[in-house]
Design a protein around this nucleic acid. Structure first.
Lengths: 167, 167
DNA sequence: TTAAACTTTCAGTAATTATTGAAAGTTAAA
DNA sequence: TTTAACTTTCAATAATTACTGAAAGTTTAA
């Protein structure tokens, strides 16, 4: 396998993975492209490389910046804007975990909390609803806390401490 | 908030969460409905409660069974089939984690492995591709292993051991 | 067997989501 | 200022994904 083939394979795999995670294809592909690029890329570079439109590129770059995964960089002597992504995988994981917690997990926990707090009228079905949503809420809380803890351990959090403790 | 409102809220929240996780809305809603039901439900029950077609119900029940989250139960004296879902949240989490690992994470790791194993021709861009995909592969491997370890600890794996160790 | 009760399949259609491209907006060099 | 270089926005459209309902398939009671 040669460079170009490997690059295409990486970008397309990363792209389709993205859609499974609530990130759209173009967004994931732009991130992948920047991730393996040796230097910041302009919007022009990106749209040509991925064969997507200017509008699409602009919108998805913006979303990546909202996520905090991509940043603008100024290249001296150049009028146009260049973009780069976080290159450290651990830091990347940290950002993604934090954002997913904020955008998805926290709101669900809130709803579970509301639902499990309804008045118990003593009927079977109400008891079951309360019991099950409460259990789900507690699990979600624990997982969210664990994820945030893991992710806040700076440097090698995975391979060091945690990882070994579990055996 | 009364029972019916709480139930609807739970089902619709769970449904929209599902789509963020690569599970479609109907599939997640069926699971939610079964999860808070006090007894197994028939296809008829489900389609009426969620207001979805017979075909849709059938297809999504099948997928839930493929995931191992829902099972058929025989109700004596009844001709039709009834369905129930795993009621224990920990066990549910275990199944979901295992399936996601198998369906999504493992295949990506395989591609990352292939891509990071291309011949190093010494160019900058090849070196960068190899370095970055290798880092990604290692992180994915670690996360996958961690997830599977966590998930195989029977009984209260979260709140017990792991959770406290990390502080 | 047969036929009623039930489930699955799948072509057609609806709903949702992503993408384009051109016009409007912004910036900074001349 | 003006204007050329560049970016953003957004209505129209394309692509994808989910859903329906009726026909075909299966099972079991009589």
């Amino acid at each position: 396998m040669q460079y170009q083939e490997a690059k295409d394979k990486f970008i397309s795999t990363w792209g389709s993975l993205g859609s499974l995670w609530g990130i759209n294809k173009a967004m994931a592909q732009i991130q992948a492209l920047l991730f393996i690029s040796t230097k910041p890329l302009s919007m022009e570079d990106i749209m040509h490389d991925l064969k997507i439109s200017r509008g699409n590129t602009s919108m998805n770059l913006r979303q990546l910046m909202d996520w905090g995964i991509v940043t603008k960089v100024l290249v001296s002597g150049e009028r146009k804007e260049f973009f780069t992504t976080e290159k450290d995988v651990q830091e990347l994981a940290r950002i993604v975990a934090k954002e997913r917690s904020r955008r998805e997990i926290k709101p669900v926990i809130k709803v579970l909390d509301e639902v499990s707090s309804i008045e118990n009228d003593g009927t079977e079905k109400t008891k079951e609803l309360i019991k099950q949503t409460k259990a789900l809420k507690e699990l979600s809380d624990d997982l969210d806390t664990l994820m945030n803890k893991l992710v806040n351990q700076k440097q090698n959090w995975l391979t060091k401490s945690v990882f070994k403790l579990i055996k």
